[in-house]
Amino acid sequence: MAASAHGSVWGPLRLGIPGLCCRRPPLGLYARMRRLPGPEVSGRSVAAASGPGAWGTDHYCLELLRKRDYEGYLCSLLLPAESRSSVFALRAFNVELAQVKDSVSEKTIGLMRMQFWKKTVEDIYCDNPPHQPVAIELWKAVKRHNLTKRWLMKIVDEREKNLDDKAYRNIKELENYAENTQSSLLYLTLEILGIKDLHADHAASHIGKAQGIVTCLRATPYHGSRRKVFLPMDICMLHGVSQEDFLRRNQDKNVRDVIYDIASQAHLHLKHARSFHKTVPVKAFPAFLQTVSLEDFLKKIQRVDFDIFHPSLQQKNTLLPLYLYIQSWRKTY
């Protein structure tokens, strides 16, 4: 089996927390979720979201995140109150960019949308954001926290390059993509939290790379249903696996070995980020709550012996909000 052949990389499970039942964490995340308004986002309300009498641009960002990046939404709820709305805006910006690729039928249209967001970032730093909910909220975040323009532009530029429907040539190319998107998002989150620390940035770099790799793995069944495969070609070739094997949902050992190798790289990034947690300011830990969902996925895929098409991998963990709150309460990542 794939797991038994390579099992030495995987460390002990961390979500089991001995003695936790003896201490009762304060009510927090679930209460916040219940208090949030929840009407559906419609095209009509989106168009009017920044106008008078609408929910408001902040509510639009929150709803977009809740629907399109639920794990990011849950993590954002546990940030300090003064930072929450800015991170909602930042993550909503990322969602807007991420959904361009799947929402257009022609690359030219995707490039036009990316050009809109490039100009939007430029206009935000000229205090002239367009009348668009996410743009307005992002402008507020930039003004409030003096966010670095370079990180925002890196996210747009990398998403634009990724409009080509090509597999990553190697794991390094996937890591570079993750660094310029997910890690950049974390650098900006640290700025919102008021953290300027080399060790925190180092952790953000590795956690962002782990996030990018896990996202690529999780999306494999969806991409396969659209006749697309984006997994690193070098690892596929190493194990003699073709793109057609993934399109046919082949579950042979060599296919699972490909998934094992890729998942192991995410695991190593996560492990390395945690190896120097004592040197990272505690104030930075809330920015890294996504490690909970990353670890949850890596454990699940290990349990199914790296069968990327196993139905259990597509099921939401209903206990994730609780695990996130516990992680926040324990002040760790």
Rank of each mutant, 00 (worst) to 15 (best):
K140G: 03
A81P: 14
V241W: 01
W139K: 03
A178T: 00
C75N: 09
R256P: 03
C236N: 03
R159W: 04
I136D: 02
Y333K: 01
Y177C: 08
K331R: 11
T181H: 03
H272W: 15
D234I: 00
D102T: 10
S205V: 03
K149W: 04
Y177M: 08
Q99C: 11
K271T: 13
T318E: 12
K271W: 11
L268Y: 09
N180F: 13
D252L: 09
K119W: 03
C216I: 14
A266R: 00
S184P: 09
P286V: 09
K118P: 00
K101H: 15
H272Q: 12
Q302N: 07
Q315F: 09
A141D: 01
G53H: 11
I124N: 01
H310L: 01
P129E: 07
V156Y: 04
V258W: 02
R91C: 03
G110N: 09
M112R: 10
A47W: 14
I235H: 04
I326Q: 07
V156E: 00
S85I: 09
E175K: 03
F276R: 06
D201C: 04
I195Y: 02
R66N: 07
W117Y: 09
F88R: 07
E295I: 07
I195N: 03
L78H: 05
V241R: 03
S184I: 14
V134D: 01
Q302D: 06
E160K: 14
I213L: 12
L217V: 08
A49N: 11
A89P: 01
H310P: 03
L97W: 01
I326T: 13
N162D: 15
S76A: 12
R249H: 13
L174F: 05
S105G: 15
I326K: 06
Q99P: 04
L138W: 00
D261F: 05
P52E: 12
I155A: 07
W117A: 05
Y325I: 15
Q314P: 06
L111W: 14
Q290L: 10
T215V: 09
A167F: 14
T57W: 11
K278P: 12
Q315A: 11
M114I: 13
Y333M: 12
A273C: 04
A167S: 14
A47T: 14
P281V: 02
G224P: 04
L62M: 08
H223R: 03
H239N: 09
W117P: 01
R68M: 14
I235W: 04
V214M: 10
K278M: 12
A167C: 11
E244F: 04
E158S: 13
L238T: 11
V255G: 05
V156L: 13
L174D: 02
A266F: 01
F309S: 05
Q182N: 14
A92C: 13
D257H: 10
S86L: 02
A47D: 04
D164Q: 12
L247Q: 04
E96C: 10
I308E: 03
Y325A: 11
C236P: 00
N254Y: 15
T189K: 06
A98Y: 05
G208F: 02
H145C: 10
L294G: 02
L231Y: 01
D296S: 09
D307T: 01
S242M: 06
Y260V: 05
F309Q: 07
R159V: 04
L190C: 03
A92T: 07
A204T: 01
I235E: 06
D164M: 11
G194T: 02
H239C: 03
S183E: 02
T148R: 08
K300R: 14
S225C: 10
L111V: 13
N250T: 08
K209C: 05
V304R: 05
H267W: 14
A98C: 13
K107W: 09
D102N: 07
L324K: 03
Y73V: 02
D165K: 07
D164N: 13
K140Y: 04
H206A: 05
N170F: 05
K316D: 07
D127E: 09
L111H: 14
P232R: 00
I326S: 08
H59S: 11
I259W: 01
Q315T: 11
G53M: 13
H131D: 12
P52M: 10
V46W: 07
Y70L: 09
H59Y: 10
H202Q: 06
T148N: 15
Y325G: 06
M112G: 14
Q265V: 12
I136V: 15
A263P: 03
V156D: 05
L320Q: 07
K143P: 00
F297E: 02
L247E: 03
H269W: 02
I155L: 11
I171D: 00
E244G: 03
C126D: 15
K331P: 09
K149V: 04
E175V: 07
K209T: 04
S312K: 12
S205R: 05
A54K: 09
K140C: 03
V142R: 06
L193E: 00
R227T: 09
Y177I: 03
D261Y: 06
L217Q: 00
E71P: 06
H269M: 02
H202N: 05
P321K: 00
G194R: 08
T189M: 14
V87F: 13
P281E: 04
H206Y: 04
T57G: 13
P221L: 10
L174Y: 00
I171K: 03
T279M: 15
Y323W: 14
S86C: 08
G72Q: 12
P286D: 08
R248I: 09
R248L: 06
I308A: 06
Y125Q: 03
K67D: 10
A263K: 00
D305E: 08
E137T: 03
G224W: 08
R68D: 04
V258A: 13
T120Y: 11
V46F: 15
L190R: 01
R84A: 07
H131N: 13
L188I: 09
A200W: 00
D257Q: 04
P232Q: 00
W151N: 05
S45R: 06
T318L: 13
P129I: 13
I195F: 05
M237W: 09
E106Y: 09
H131A: 14
V292E: 03
A98L: 06
S242T: 09
A263Y: 04
Q132D: 08
I109A: 14
H267M: 10
F88G: 14
S50T: 15
R159M: 06
L320W: 06
F230W: 11
E175G: 00
P232I: 00
K172F: 09
T332P: 03
Q265M: 10
A263R: 00
H310C: 06
L217K: 01
S242R: 04
I136S: 07
P221T: 14
E179G: 00
A48Y: 14
L185T: 08
V87K: 01
V100L: 15
M237C: 10
L188E: 02
I213W: 02
Y125N: 04
Q132N: 12
R66A: 08
L231D: 00
A48P: 06
Q182G: 10
Q290R: 04
D58W: 07
V46P: 05
D261M: 08
